Amino acid sequence: MSKQTSASASGSGSATTGGSDGAADAGELARAYDVALLDLDGVVYTGARAVPHAVQVLGEARRRGMGIAFVTNNASRPPKAVAEHLVELGVSAEPEDVVTSAQAAARVVAERVPEGASVLVVGGEGLEVALREHGLRPVRSADEEPAAVVQGFAADVGWQALTEASYAVARGVFWVASNADLTIPTERGIAPGNGALVGVVRAATGAEPVVAGKPELPLHRETILRTGARRPLVVGDRLDTDIEGACNGGVDSLLVLTGVTTPQGLLAAGAGQRPTFVAEDLRALLAAPVTARREGDAWVCGDWSARVTEGALAVEGSGARIDGLRAACAAAWASDAPVDTSGVVERLGW
């Protein structure tokens, strides 16, 4: 991915840091990229509810020729269950459209241990199904002499499961975490994620797991293997997983502000966590990007301009707040020194 610092956007909401290698010039994103690799939690749904516009946009994107793959760090459910949930929400999905960190973790383990080996599972059914696909035997006790430990999120993971994992890891057993997300979005708010549970085993053993999920490369590799994508666009709501993972994989990304990331967090994004495009929601897939341009010492997008003066970011203008955010991000990210962004988000109307 190119590391330019221009910003772009679509009419419904996308912004870029450059880096699309001309793909964005081909029209709307749904035609510029062959497959959208969509995160689920905070992008397509939050718990039992679809994110606004997601159902309609994904259907239309498919009609325009864009492939859709659902790529999730959540390892608790197998692809079949995830696809069924999507269908219940009105999103067309088959099990093969879903790629999970459980599948990536299972491949990592299968490349390390003999076929038929026992693997201690801390997590849900998704991990067990993925391991069996590779000819491995899921177990739940360290007394089963497992060749590896695989840990993923499940709402019912408790002390006993974490203890069994700690016993095995302390003996030097190969340890893989499906992901290291510290939090997950729920209908009631932000809750502890698998990374928090991994921290319990880490505290008990002093060991560090191999992480399969975003932002690490195993899940990216698994997704490309399963989809055959040649011009993928990663779509997510988190800088530290979705967007950093896209940067690590060298592909373009779209950040939507329907989940974890806030405008203030986006302004402060480091070089390895800056999305190619920014949008309020998935409607950006159906629109053409508009590039924020540099005019003198300012960055301009729509009716907004942003500049850094004496280390402080300032914005001027009116109109769509997403355009203001794109201009502000371009100005902040173009600076070689730390930028004071206090008051900017409020000035933009977020």
Rank of each mutant, 00 (worst) to 15 (best):
G193M: 01
Y167P: 01
A268K: 13
A93R: 05
A48C: 00
L136I: 09
V260Q: 11
D21N: 14
G265Q: 15
S14N: 03
D252Y: 01
G124Y: 09
P289L: 06
G42M: 07
L40I: 15
T241P: 05
V98A: 04
R221M: 05
H85K: 15
W299R: 03
L255G: 06
S253Q: 06
R132S: 14
V51W: 12
E346A: 06
L254P: 00
Q103C: 00
V210M: 10
A15G: 12
L197I: 05
G27D: 13
D97A: 01
I184A: 13
W175D: 04
A81L: 11
G67P: 01
F277D: 10
A154E: 08
V234P: 00
A117G: 13
A147P: 00
L37N: 01
D323V: 00
P209D: 01
R140C: 10
W304T: 13
G27R: 07
E145D: 15
N179G: 04
I322R: 02
A168G: 13
A306S: 12
S166P: 04
E216C: 10
D323Q: 06
E28T: 10
G189P: 00
G123R: 02
R49Q: 06
D240C: 04
A298Y: 01
L219M: 13
R221G: 02
S20D: 15
L120S: 15
E145Q: 13
V129S: 12
G296C: 09
V315D: 04
L136G: 06
V256G: 00
G13E: 08
A170P: 04
K80V: 12
L225R: 15
N179K: 00
T291W: 12
G311E: 06
S12W: 14
P275I: 11
L255M: 06
R226L: 08
G27K: 08
D340A: 14
R188F: 01
G250E: 08
L217D: 02
E28F: 10
T163R: 14
A83W: 03
G259D: 08
